[in-house]
Simulated scan of single mutants.
Amino acid sequence: MTEWWLWMYVAAMAGGVVLFTRWRADPCGVPLSEYRVAIAVPLWSGSWYLVLALGGGRTEVAGHDLYWARYVDWSVTSPLLLVALMLTATHALPGRRWRLTSALIGMNLLVFLCGLVAELTADAAVRYTLFTIGVLALLGLYGLIWGPLRTHAYRQPKEIAAVYREAALLLSVLWVGYPLFWFIGPAGVGLISSATTSLLFVVLSILTKVGWSILDLGRLRALSDRGELTVV
Protein backbone atom coordinates (compact mmCIF):
# COMPACT_ATOMS: atom_id res chain seq x y z
CA MET A 1 0.00 0.00 0.00
CA THR A 2 2.83 2.41 0.84
CA GLU A 3 4.48 1.85 -2.52
CA TRP A 4 1.16 2.45 -4.30
CA TRP A 5 0.87 5.86 -2.65
CA LEU A 6 4.46 6.66 -3.58
CA TRP A 7 3.76 5.88 -7.23
CA MET A 8 0.66 8.07 -7.02
CA TYR A 9 2.89 10.87 -5.81
CA VAL A 10 5.31 10.41 -8.70
CA ALA A 11 2.38 10.56 -11.12
CA ALA A 12 1.05 13.74 -9.47
CA MET A 13 4.46 15.41 -9.74
CA ALA A 14 4.72 14.40 -13.41
CA GLY A 15 1.28 15.90 -13.97
CA GLY A 16 2.43 19.13 -12.31
CA VAL A 17 5.47 19.35 -14.58
CA VAL A 18 3.27 18.85 -17.66
CA LEU A 19 0.70 21.43 -16.51
CA PHE A 20 3.22 24.14 -15.63
CA THR A 21 5.16 23.51 -18.84
CA ARG A 22 1.95 24.04 -20.83
CA TRP A 23 1.21 27.20 -18.87
CA ARG A 24 4.76 28.42 -19.53
CA ALA A 25 4.11 28.16 -23.29
CA ASP A 26 1.28 30.70 -22.79
CA PRO A 27 2.49 32.72 -19.78
CA CYS A 28 -0.43 35.21 -19.68
CA GLY A 29 1.83 38.03 -18.54
CA VAL A 30 3.39 36.05 -15.68
CA PRO A 31 7.23 36.16 -15.79
CA LEU A 32 8.84 32.96 -17.04
CA SER A 33 10.96 32.80 -13.88
CA GLU A 34 7.83 31.95 -11.90
CA TYR A 35 7.07 29.03 -14.21
CA ARG A 36 10.66 27.78 -13.96
CA VAL A 37 10.35 27.62 -10.18
CA ALA A 38 6.95 25.94 -10.39
CA ILE A 39 8.33 23.30 -12.79
CA ALA A 40 11.50 22.70 -10.78
CA VAL A 41 9.58 21.87 -7.58
CA PRO A 42 7.63 18.80 -8.82
CA LEU A 43 10.49 17.74 -11.10
CA TRP A 44 12.97 17.52 -8.20
CA SER A 45 10.43 16.16 -5.71
CA GLY A 46 9.06 13.54 -8.11
CA SER A 47 12.58 12.31 -8.86
CA TRP A 48 13.32 11.57 -5.21
CA TYR A 49 9.94 9.98 -4.57
CA LEU A 50 10.66 7.77 -7.56
CA VAL A 51 13.72 6.60 -5.62
CA LEU A 52 11.43 5.86 -2.65
CA ALA A 53 8.89 4.05 -4.82
CA LEU A 54 11.67 1.83 -6.18
CA GLY A 55 12.61 0.83 -2.64
CA GLY A 56 15.53 3.18 -2.02
CA GLY A 57 15.96 6.45 -0.14
CA ARG A 58 15.47 4.98 3.33
CA THR A 59 17.44 3.42 6.16
CA GLU A 60 16.74 2.29 9.71
CA VAL A 61 17.93 4.59 12.51
CA ALA A 62 16.97 4.88 16.18
CA GLY A 63 14.49 2.03 15.82
CA HIS A 64 12.49 3.40 12.91
CA ASP A 65 12.78 3.92 9.16
CA LEU A 66 14.38 7.20 8.15
CA TYR A 67 13.14 8.28 4.72
CA TRP A 68 16.21 10.36 3.94
CA ALA A 69 15.05 10.95 0.35
CA ARG A 70 12.29 13.17 1.79
CA TYR A 71 14.89 15.40 3.38
CA VAL A 72 16.84 15.63 0.11
CA ASP A 73 13.54 16.62 -1.52
CA TRP A 74 12.66 19.20 1.14
CA SER A 75 16.17 20.71 1.14
CA VAL A 76 15.50 22.04 -2.39
CA THR A 77 11.73 22.32 -2.78
CA SER A 78 11.05 24.26 0.44
CA PRO A 79 13.45 27.09 -0.53
CA LEU A 80 11.99 27.10 -4.05
CA LEU A 81 8.47 27.51 -2.64
CA LEU A 82 9.70 30.47 -0.59
CA VAL A 83 11.27 31.97 -3.71
CA ALA A 84 7.92 31.53 -5.49
CA LEU A 85 6.15 33.27 -2.61
CA MET A 86 8.66 36.14 -2.78
CA LEU A 87 8.06 36.47 -6.52
CA THR A 88 4.34 36.83 -5.84
CA ALA A 89 4.99 39.32 -3.03
CA THR A 90 7.06 41.52 -5.40
CA HIS A 91 5.22 40.70 -8.62
CA ALA A 92 4.38 44.30 -9.50
CA LEU A 93 7.35 45.93 -7.73
CA PRO A 94 10.72 46.94 -9.20
CA GLY A 95 13.49 44.57 -8.16
CA ARG A 96 13.34 41.56 -5.85
CA ARG A 97 13.87 41.32 -2.11
CA TRP A 98 16.66 38.75 -2.18
CA ARG A 99 18.07 39.63 1.25
CA LEU A 100 14.69 39.00 2.81
CA THR A 101 14.36 35.82 0.78
CA SER A 102 17.77 34.69 2.07
CA ALA A 103 16.49 35.23 5.62
CA LEU A 104 13.41 33.14 4.82
CA ILE A 105 15.52 30.34 3.37
CA GLY A 106 17.94 30.48 6.32
CA MET A 107 15.08 30.13 8.81
CA ASN A 108 13.64 27.31 6.74
CA LEU A 109 17.06 25.61 6.78
CA LEU A 110 17.01 25.67 10.57
CA VAL A 111 13.58 23.99 10.58
CA PHE A 112 14.86 21.37 8.15
CA LEU A 113 18.07 20.63 10.05
CA CYS A 114 16.28 20.34 13.39
CA GLY A 115 13.89 17.77 11.94
CA LEU A 116 16.66 15.75 10.32
CA VAL A 117 19.03 15.72 13.31
CA ALA A 118 16.14 14.98 15.68
CA GLU A 119 15.17 11.96 13.60
CA LEU A 120 18.77 10.72 13.68
CA THR A 121 18.97 11.08 17.46
CA ALA A 122 18.16 8.13 19.72
CA ASP A 123 17.95 10.16 22.95
CA ALA A 124 14.33 11.24 23.46
CA ALA A 125 15.14 14.41 25.41
CA VAL A 126 17.53 15.67 22.73
CA ARG A 127 15.08 14.69 19.98
CA TYR A 128 12.19 16.65 21.47
CA THR A 129 14.44 19.61 22.26
CA LEU A 130 15.45 19.77 18.61
CA PHE A 131 11.83 19.36 17.57
CA THR A 132 10.86 22.32 19.79
CA ILE A 133 13.64 24.46 18.29
CA GLY A 134 12.41 23.51 14.82
CA VAL A 135 8.84 24.53 15.68
CA LEU A 136 10.07 27.88 17.03
CA ALA A 137 12.05 28.39 13.82
CA LEU A 138 8.90 27.65 11.82
CA LEU A 139 7.07 30.32 13.84
CA GLY A 140 9.93 32.70 13.05
CA LEU A 141 9.53 31.84 9.37
CA TYR A 142 5.84 32.67 9.61
CA GLY A 143 6.79 35.97 11.22
CA LEU A 144 8.85 36.88 8.14
CA ILE A 145 6.09 35.75 5.74
CA TRP A 146 3.37 37.70 7.54
CA GLY A 147 5.60 40.61 8.56
CA PRO A 148 8.13 42.19 6.15
CA LEU A 149 7.26 40.07 3.11
CA ARG A 150 3.57 40.83 3.55
CA THR A 151 4.42 44.55 3.83
CA HIS A 152 6.10 44.43 0.43
CA ALA A 153 3.18 42.49 -1.04
CA TYR A 154 0.70 45.13 0.15
CA ARG A 155 2.58 47.85 -1.74
CA GLN A 156 1.21 46.25 -4.92
CA PRO A 157 -2.26 46.71 -6.43
CA LYS A 158 -4.85 45.20 -4.13
CA GLU A 159 -5.70 42.39 -6.56
CA ILE A 160 -2.10 41.11 -6.56
CA ALA A 161 -1.80 41.67 -2.80
CA ALA A 162 -4.85 39.44 -2.41
CA VAL A 163 -3.10 36.70 -4.38
CA TYR A 164 -0.15 36.92 -1.98
CA ARG A 165 -2.46 36.75 1.02
CA GLU A 166 -4.16 33.61 -0.28
CA ALA A 167 -0.86 31.97 -1.27
CA ALA A 168 0.80 32.79 2.07
CA LEU A 169 -2.20 31.55 4.03
CA LEU A 170 -2.39 28.25 2.15
CA LEU A 171 1.36 27.62 2.47
CA SER A 172 1.27 28.48 6.17
CA VAL A 173 -1.59 26.06 6.82
CA LEU A 174 -0.04 23.25 4.79
CA TRP A 175 3.38 23.56 6.40
CA VAL A 176 1.84 23.01 9.85
CA GLY A 177 1.25 19.42 8.73
CA TYR A 178 4.95 18.59 8.45
CA PRO A 179 5.92 18.98 12.13
CA LEU A 180 2.52 17.60 13.16
CA PHE A 181 2.88 14.37 11.16
CA TRP A 182 6.54 14.09 12.24
CA PHE A 183 5.52 14.37 15.90
CA ILE A 184 2.71 11.80 15.80
CA GLY A 185 4.69 9.43 13.55
CA PRO A 186 7.42 6.89 14.38
CA ALA A 187 10.08 9.60 14.78
CA GLY A 188 7.96 11.23 17.50
CA VAL A 189 5.44 9.69 19.87
CA GLY A 190 4.51 6.88 17.48
CA LEU A 191 0.75 7.32 17.42
CA ILE A 192 0.63 6.31 13.74
CA SER A 193 2.59 3.76 11.73
CA SER A 194 5.35 4.42 9.21
CA ALA A 195 2.97 3.50 6.37
CA THR A 196 0.31 5.96 7.58
CA THR A 197 2.94 8.66 8.02
CA SER A 198 4.14 8.06 4.47
CA LEU A 199 0.59 8.36 3.16
CA LEU A 200 -0.01 11.61 5.03
CA PHE A 201 3.24 13.11 3.76
CA VAL A 202 2.34 12.06 0.22
CA VAL A 203 -1.05 13.80 0.32
CA LEU A 204 0.36 16.86 2.09
CA SER A 205 3.26 17.19 -0.35
CA ILE A 206 1.00 16.92 -3.41
CA LEU A 207 -1.08 19.78 -2.03
CA THR A 208 2.01 21.80 -1.15
CA LYS A 209 4.12 21.31 -4.27
CA VAL A 210 1.51 21.11 -7.02
CA GLY A 211 -1.74 22.34 -5.50
CA TRP A 212 -0.14 25.46 -4.03
CA SER A 213 1.53 26.41 -7.32
CA ILE A 214 -1.74 25.89 -9.18
CA LEU A 215 -3.39 28.39 -6.84
CA ASP A 216 -0.52 30.88 -6.98
CA LEU A 217 0.07 30.84 -10.76
CA GLY A 218 -3.59 30.28 -11.58
CA ARG A 219 -4.68 33.39 -9.68
CA LEU A 220 -1.97 35.50 -11.34
CA ARG A 221 -2.96 34.19 -14.77
CA ALA A 222 -6.62 34.98 -14.02
CA LEU A 223 -5.71 38.57 -13.18
CA SER A 224 -3.98 38.85 -16.55
CA ASP A 225 -7.09 37.56 -18.31
CA ARG A 226 -9.08 40.33 -16.62
CA GLY A 227 -6.45 42.96 -17.47
CA GLU A 228 -5.59 43.52 -13.79
CA LEU A 229 -2.02 42.17 -13.85
CA THR A 230 0.63 44.85 -13.98
CA VAL A 231 4.32 43.98 -13.88
CA VAL A 232 6.88 46.76 -13.30
Rank of each mutant, 00 (worst) to 15 (best):
G177Y: 02
V83I: 14
T2N: 12
Y71A: 10
R70S: 11
T2M: 12
I184K: 04
G106I: 10
F183Q: 00
T230Q: 12
L109N: 04
M13C: 15
P179D: 09
G190I: 11
I133H: 02
A53L: 03
V135F: 11
V18G: 09
V163C: 07
D26G: 09
V210C: 05
L104K: 01
W175E: 06
G56Q: 12
R127N: 06
R150H: 08
Y71I: 03
R127E: 03
L87A: 09
L32G: 14
A84Y: 02
I133V: 15
M1K: 10
G147F: 03
R99A: 12
E60N: 12
T151D: 07
G57C: 09
H64S: 14
P186I: 04
P42K: 04
L139K: 02
L100W: 02
V37P: 00
T121D: 10
A125Y: 05
L54V: 12
G16R: 01
V232G: 13
D225P: 00
L109V: 10
A125L: 08
H91V: 01
L200I: 10
Y9G: 13
R150I: 00
N108V: 00
G211L: 04
A40T: 11
A62L: 09
A195P: 01
I133Q: 05
G177F: 08
L223A: 07
L223N: 06
G227W: 13
L199H: 03
A187I: 02
Y178M: 03
W175T: 13
I145Q: 06
L144R: 01
V41K: 01
L229S: 05
R219Q: 13
S193K: 04
L80N: 09
L93R: 15
P31E: 11
L170I: 14
Y164T: 09
T59F: 08
A162F: 00
S198Y: 01
V231E: 10
A161D: 05
S213E: 11
R22L: 15
R24W: 13
G147V: 10
W182Q: 05
V202L: 05
I133W: 11
L199T: 14
M107P: 00
V51N: 08
R150S: 00
W7N: 07
P186K: 07
S172T: 15
L6R: 09
I206H: 01
L109G: 14
I145T: 10
I206N: 01
E34R: 12
F131W: 13
A11E: 08
Y35F: 15
L220N: 07
E166N: 12
L199G: 02
R226V: 04
V72M: 11
L130F: 06
L109M: 12
G134S: 11
V30R: 02
S75E: 01
R155C: 07
R155L: 15
L139E: 06
P179V: 09
G134Y: 00
G95Y: 03
S102T: 14
P79E: 07
G227T: 10
G63K: 04
L170F: 14
L19D: 02
A122N: 03
V83Y: 14
L180F: 14
G29P: 11
G115D: 12
H91G: 05
I105G: 03
A25I: 10
